[in-house]
Structure formats: C-alpha cells, structure tokens
Design a protein around this nucleic acid. Structure first.
Length: 417
RNA sequence: CGGGGUGUGGUGUAACGGCUAACAUGCUUGUUUUGGGUACAAGUGACUCCGGGUUCGAAUCCCGGCACCCCGACCA
C-alpha cells in the first residue's frame, strides 16, 4: 500500500484523554480511533493487525479440530433465563423490540451455541466437537479502562467443546491448552506469558488463565521460578508448592490474555443438550469454554513489545511486513523505489510504501512509531551504491543488501513466522 | 456504584472576573531543505462541553447535567 493513499496520519502529541500506553501508541500511530469510553474503531493499520491475529488463532483452532461458526450478537432472553443469567448479570446491554419483547447484546455465547447444538447432537457418534467463532462481545462494564484492554465492545475468539464425558473433555482441554501456548508464542509474547492456575467455576476447582507480564497489568500472579507455571493471587494460598515441586515464586503484574475452563454439564443440563450412548441411555454433554480477546491481545503486544520510539510488531501480526521508505524525489530514486515496490508486491510481500513528499526525519519517526518489523530505505545514496539499507525495527540492526538479493532476504525474515 | 480529577480551533496547551480568547502543532499556498519531525512568509481554523444563575462584564465564580481520565469495588 502506498502511504499517500493511507488516510490515517500519525500524531506527535499523546491524546489527553488516554493514559494507557496501548491506546496512546495505537492512537498516535493511527491504528485505532476512540469512539467513546471503552469503544474503539479499528482503522486500516489496526484492522490489519486484528485480521492477522485472527488468522493466527484460526490456524491453531483448526489444527485441533475446531469448526468455525458465527453466531448472532442479538440474543434471545428466553435462552438466558434457562441458565438464570438474564437477570443475574448486570453486564448486559439490553434493548427492546418494536412492539415489545426484550433482547440483549451477547456478552458470551455458551447459551446460544448449546441451543444450536441440540439440533445436531443426539448420539455418542456425534461427539466430540469443538466449535469456535470470532464475535463481537458487548459488556456493560461499570468502568471501561486501560485503552483497548477493557472495553464495552470487543472482538473475541470463543471456542466451546462438547464431549461425551469428563475424560474426553480433559483430552480436548489439554489439547486446547497447548494450542493456546502456541498462539501466544507465535504472537511474540510467549516468553512473558504464563499458564496460570486461577479460580474455577461450578464444575472444577480451577481454571487456566494465560497471563502476560506487563507493568500496567490488573492481575497479580506468582510465577514458579523453576518451571514458569504461575498461580493467580486469588488462589495462591492453596498452592504452597508448584506442581513441579518447587516452592520458589516470583510476583508479577500481568494482564489476562486468555482463559479456558471446564463448564461441566451446567449448560447442557439447562438447555437440554444430551446424547444417547451405546446402550441407548441419555447423557448430558460435557462442555468446555476457551476465550481470547483479540483487541486485548493486540493491546498487550503493543504495550509489551514497544519501545520509546513507538510500536514494535512481531512479523506474525504486523500490519505490513516491510516498510519501504523512499528518501528524496529525484527521478532515479522514485523509479528505483517504485520498481522495488512493484517487485515486492509481485512476490506477495506485504509492504507499506512511504512515497510521501516529506522530510527524511518525519519518515523515520513515523516508521518507528508504526513499528513495521523491516524497514528498507531507498535513497540517492543506496541507488548509487546498488545496495539498499534494511533495518530491523526491534533490534535496530542494519544490513546493506544488494538490490537483487533483497527480496530473498526479506522473504527469509517473513518465513520465520 | 463510592472517591478524586479534567472539559478551550483537528491535536496538545495558555489566558488575574475586564481589550478582537493566545501559543505550538496540523492543514492550504509560495520559497527553501532533502538521511532523524528543515527554515521563512502568508493564509485557514473556536458559539471556550451543555443548560441555568451571579455580575456593568464570565473560558474564569455558583448550581444542575453530560462526557472523559484515574483509584477502589466489580469483572469466565
């Protein structure tokens, strides 16, 4: 994409009504726009990141046998009354139909999906199943805060598993846990993200959270110094020793980027989701739930991987793979940069081409702020020497690469994801 | 929902109850510059969040509302 066609612009000043690092950086770099407290729009650069995160998650969900659906945001009050969550929750955005009748904007989808599955699950031969979606959730948070980390409307990947019994559920659960670890690793925050024991629900004493270290986190966890597994502050008292045997812990402030838990038969019982086993006996389906907030993950990456110059995206989620920066506008430089841009596009490289007529300093500062992993500079100097300059955003390492081998070099970086 | 704070051009800020609401940035035009937000000039842009009140006079003081931020509570 040519930067002259990109409608967003960077800003020098931090917005006055944001103190969180994620929103500050993302707004200054033009990734998001604040609509109101806890509600943000995703602009072209931000949407590309969200889409990449979505693709990354989709790949892992499909790998463990997930089937993608998209359920509605408008939700039927009756279904929720069956699980007594229509009145029990004050996080609903409720509204009214013309002519009467209440409905709500979904804050999670256990009920409607369970309801859907009653149409298709009737035999033990139909299980197990894993169903997931990327869906906008609405939560009437008493207090939205921390930029895109706790919003009232946000995109979430939620998967629900349906199993014959506890044993089969646990197999699925273990697979999903591994998939989650893989997702956060690929998203570039594997090192600082800890599988964390946390409060469970009605059906199991504990749930598993994925907690990422960040100075601005809202949670406190105790990380085992031997094996990196962690325990949420809320359950730490129940664990004198880590499951690995060590009793040495380090306290960290974190943000919860994922949470998986056992639902047992709570929803299948309430909504009548059951199957016949081989003997013809009716059994309730055993369920699990697995969530990742995409915006929160994006915000967490923005906060934890950025530096004083701006955002630093890992290749896997970056809005573009290469930022091609052209300095100067003499004919030869323009032709060389244009050709190079076209060449990268032909090779399928995602490239943002800064073809604007602004000063070098402005281009470099914008490039640093936007945080695309590789920067290639084409200028009178590089055209003359025949070697273009390639800079890694994260490390600042600079390479001079001949024009002919530049595409290969870039692709070797891209392949690393 | 309890507590604290803030609302002024697109953005960031300034202005004792008193002149035509100032500065920076952005944007437009021209010259200049071309490897880290280049310099100069001329323009552009605000019912000072909304509604009342006090006053000769309100961005400024008072009351009410709304919005936003922070702390807490809450948060599968």
């Amino acid at each position: 994409m040519r930067q002259t066609h990109l409608f967003t612009k960077t800003r020098k000043e931090s917005p006055k009504d944001e103190t969180s690092k994620n929103a500050d950086l993302l707004i200054r770099a033009g990734f998001i726009h604040k609509e109101m407290a806890g509600v943000y729009d995703y602009l072209p650069l931000g949407l590309r990141v969200i889409k990449n995160i979505e693709g990354l998650i989709r790949k892992e969900m499909d790998k463990v046998g997930g089937q993608e659906v998209e359920l509605s945001s408008l939700q039927n009050k009756e279904i929720w009354e069956k699980t007594e969550r229509w009145d029990a929750k004050d996080i609903w955005f409720k509204t009214e139909l013309n002519g009467g009748g209440e409905l709500g904007l979904g804050f999670t989808h256990e009920e409607p999906l369970t309801q859907v599955m009653t149409n298709f699950v009737s035999s033990y031969k139909d299980l197990p199943l894993s169903v997931y979606q990327f869906q906008t959730k609405f939560r009437n948070e008493l207090r939205a805060k921390s930029g895109i980390m706790r919003g009232r409307e946000f995109l979430m990947k939620d998967m629900y598993t349906f199993a014959l019994d506890k044993e089969q559920h646990e197999e699925l659960y273990a697979k999903l846990k591994e998939a989650y670890i893989e997702i956060f690793k690929k998203a570039g925050i594997g090192e600082i993200t800890h599988p964390t024991k946390a409060l469970g629900g009605t059906f199991s004493p504990y749930s598993d959270e994925f907690q990422t270290e960040t100075g601005s986190g809202e949670d406190t966890i105790h990380v085992c110094t031997a094996c990196n597994i962690a325990y949420n502050e809320e359950v730490k008292g129940e664990f004198e020793k880590c499951t690995c045997g060590s009793d040495s812990f380090e306290t960290k402030k974190t943000v919860e980027v994922g949470n998986i838990f056992n639902l047992g038969t709570k929803f299948s019982e309430a909504l009548g989701l059951s199957y016949k086993d081989e003997s013809g006996k009716e059994n309730n389906v055993h369920m699990g739930s697995y969530g990742i907030g995409l915006g929160r993950l994006m915000g967490t990456i923005a906060e934890t991987l950025s530096d004083e110059k701006g955002l630093v995206w890992p290749m896997s989620v970056a809005p573009f793979q290469v930022h091609l920066v052209r300095l100067g506008d003499n004919e030869e430089v323009v032709r060389s940069a244009d050709e190079f841009y076209e060449g990268l596009l032909r090779e399928g490289v995602e490239v943002l081409y800064d073809d604007r007529d602004v000063s070098a300093g402005e281009k470099f500062n914008d490039s640093d702020l936007i945080g695309i992993p590789l920067r290639v500079v084409v200028s009178a100097k590089t055209v003359q020497s025949g070697e273009h300059e390639m800079v890694e955003r994260q490390s600042g390492k600079t390479h001079f690469v001949t024009e002919s081998s530049l595409v290969d070099t870039i692709q070797s970086y891209v392949r690393e994801i």
